[in-house]
């Protein structure tokens, strides 16, 4: 594949994976993936990495007391004014 075309593909691919492609761009990529194994593999790999990040790195809740201590400080600040 031509380097230039490959770049365009990767750019499109990232837009789709990041959920920021238009319908037209999405369809364009899907059409291309049917024909191009190289991009299909790249798409699946990038998608699996994105999914792994989301699935494995779960958000934690903020430590106990942090919200309270912030709100106390804010009340103090507001009161002082």
């Amino acid at each position: 594949m031509e380097v230039e075309q490959k770049q365009a593909c990767t750019e499109l691919l990232e837009l789709v994976i990041d959920g920021q492609a238009t319908q037209k761009q999405h369809d364009e990529l899907m059409g291309h993936l049917e024909k191009c194994e190289e991009c299909r593999e790249e798409y699946l790999l990038s998608k699996s990495i994105k999914d792994s990040l989301k699935n494995h790195i779960k958000p934690s809740t903020s430590p106990t007391g942090l919200a309270n201590s912030i709100q106390n400080k804010i009340s103090e600040t507001a009161f002082l004014k």
């Binding site: 958000p59 809740t61 903020s62 430590p63 942090l66 912030i70 709100q71 009340s75 507001a78």
Partner: peptide, 19 residues
């Protein structure tokens, strides 16, 4: 209003901010 905006719009993001 400051306190209200703070509590309603900012505080809900505390977990995301901490992460």
């Amino acid at each position: 209003d400051k306190q209200r905006v703070f509590n309603e719009e900012f505080m809900p993001h505390i977990d995301a901010m901490y992460n």
